[in-house]
Amino acid sequence: MLDTITRYEGRDAVGIDGADEPPVLPCDARGLCFEAGGELLIDHVDLKLGSGAVTVIMGPNGAGKTILVRLLHGMLEPSAGEILWGGRTLCEETRKRQAMVFQTPVLLRRSVEANIAFALRLHGENGHARCMQTLEEAGLADKARQPARLLSGGERQRLAIARALAADPEVLFLDEATASLDPGSVLAIEETVLSARDRGVKIIFITHDIGQARRLGDDIVFMHQGRIVERAPASEFFEHPASRAARDYLAGRIVL
């Protein structure tokens, strides 16, 4: 089992300002369970996430990837087990330093710029210049005044990611953030994600795209039926998948 990957040194020991903020990472989930409708949807999962690096979560539909990530981010309460971020149970302070991009992004019924401004203001930042800089980086500067809900699917996704990054998070969850995007948009988003990683942001990326997992992933978490059946560095996972489920998945067979 591979617990810490140190290829990319994140900002681990101290917070971003070097202030007395306790560290967010590592994340340590133990015996995590989630039950709904009498079914155990997450079944005793143990997972450690070190700082830096991109962790890609893969697995067939219904494996529990979305639920796991929601549990880690504190969107759902586990029915058993505990999650520690930086050695402490998940609290508001920690959650504020994380961001999540949903598969179908929810944008405010406002202009593109106002969507970014909203996220910035939550973190006590203000200013048109900062907004425009963020939009510039996302390639959306020329659409700043347009209503966010009129953007195309790919542009919405880019805006959602830009908004998530605007808050300068230390952990970024992306749930199939590039599903249904054209190849160019996919690459643009991947670039954004990689440059965030290079700044030391911990990325947890759910995807079904094997090529993308190879391009982005430093390590792969493979889930099946609510359990983590495999965790390995990307190269190892793709060369020699250890479990039958992962082999089937990678070969494009229905995973049973």
Binding site: A99, F102, V106, L108, R109, R110, F118, L122, A167
Partner: peptide, 27 residues
């Protein structure tokens, strides 16, 4: 209706209740 749309995002962003109310009323 609007809250149903925004709730998840607000939760993820840790939006304080007062800000959430103001945002919903304005939007």
């Amino acid at each position: 209706d609007l809250h149903g749309e925004y709730a998840e995002q607000f939760r993820s962003m840790c939006v304080p209740v007062r800000t959430a109310i103001a945002t919903l009323l304005w939007d």
